[in-house]
């Protein structure tokens, strides 16, 4: 038992480092992509081409005063950022990095990956509720409503892959893609996954909960410094996790000719990440009612239809 515990902690710490690095890279990429798409250069000063920008920002945040407003519920306020970040790390546990180099291959891995962000929803609500601030409460409510609305179509989109592969284990799903990617067999499912993931990550065009003009900072209004940084880390770590999962489950992970599997895996993951960034800086933001009706009236029916179609396809594959 101790050996297993030690193994898991080593994996977890290792993945924490990976997550932290991917967060730094993600934030940097975000600003560079945003810059270039807006015909400017983005960060350039800190390090060559601004590479050290995120590191500098992180160090700055470490030095900021830890401000806990007077009327907050202390337990909730302190616990919320931790509750937000932990699921992101936990979801990294079932992703098969580079054929199949996976921390733990759970038999119900796919469902685990989809279930763990539910804890993150609780974190958002607790943050909003414990902040003793009207805007935080409202932002928390809206954000949570959006998150749960998109969990269903997201799960349904992955379900089509589960049907095709006949298994809930991420490793098995990866192995079944040696001939053809599941994104090819269920393109609508893949498209749905991308769209719903963008919504789950609160990214434009679904980023109303963070819309500054409307809700100040939404549920993280009262958070400053390092505590706020944890919410950011949770978001970008989740971004990386979701893209890696999509790459493994829809795009065949590490499979590919010539290059070693880990390289393919990174390429596919970052292809998804860059695509989502591209969307973010191109498309204007949806209104909250558009966001909610989209998930209920459009995406869920489309997801169900996709399941029906895929089920039929599956009989012939």
């Amino acid at each position: 038992m101790m050996v297993t515990l030690a193994t898991s902690v080593v994996w977890a710490v290792g993945l924490f480092v990976v997550a932290a690095l991917s967060v730094m890279l993600g934030v940097y990429l975000e600003r560079k992509v945003a810059g270039h798409m807006q015909a400017r250069l983005g960060p350039m000063r800190t390090g060559p081409h601004g590479i050290a920008q995120t590191l500098a920002d992180t160090v700055k945040l470490l030095f900021k005063e830890d401000l806990i407003p007077g009327k907050v519920d202390r337990l909730g306020f302190i616990v919320a950022p931790l509750l937000a970040f932990a699921p992101a790390l936990m979801s990294l546990m079932v992703i098969p990095y580079a054929r199949p180099f996976v921390p733990r291959d759970l038999n119900a891995g796919v469902l685990y990956f989809l279930a763990v962000p539910a804890i993150g929803v609780i974190a958002v609500m607790v943050a909003g509720l414990s902040s003793a601030n009207n805007y935080s409460l409202l932002g928390g409510l809206r954000s949570a409503a959006q998150l749960i609305s998109y969990e269903i179509p997201r799960s349904l989109s992955v379900l089509s892959v589960v049907m095709l592969a006949g298994s809930l284990s991420t490793v098995t799903i990866l192995e079944r893609q040696t001939h053809v990617w599941f994104a090819v067999l269920t393109p609508i499912g893949f498209a749905l996954y991308i769209i719903t993931t963008i919504a789950e990550l609160n990214r434009t065009p679904f980023d109303l909960p963070e819309a500054e003009a409307e809700l100040v900072g939404g549920y993280h209004t009262e958070y400053s410094g390092l505590r706020w940084a944890f919410f950011m880390m949770a978001e970008y770590a989740g971004f990386f996790a979701a893209s890696a999962f999509g790459a493994a489950v829809f795009l065949g992970g590490g499979n590919g000719p010539l290059l070693p599997p880990i390289v393919w895996f990174v390429i596919k993951t970052y292809a998804i990440i860059l695509f989502m960034m591209w969307v973010k800086w191109t498309v204007p933001r949806f209104r909250i009612d558009q966001v909610m009706t989209l998930s209920r009236k459009v995406l869920i029916p489309v997801a169900l239809l996709n399941l029906a179609v895929t089920a039929v396809v599956m009989q012939y594959v």
């Binding site: 759970l106 038999n107 119900a108 469902l111 685990y112 989809l114 279930a115 763990v116 962000p117 539910a118 804890i119 929803v121 609780i122 609500m125 607790v126 909003g128 509720l129 409460l137 928390g140 409510l141 949570a144 749960i148 969990e151 809930l168």
Partner: peptide, 26 residues
């Protein structure tokens, strides 16, 4: 019961606890 355990997180923590929190927040 692996599946049930994960389903418990998915439905109870992800759904029921959220529902109760909605009630509290409202």
């Amino acid at each position: 019961a692996e599946f049930v355990a994960v389903a418990q997180i998915f439905v109870y923590v992800g759904g029921v606890a959220v529902l109760i929190l909605f009630g509290v927040m409202l």
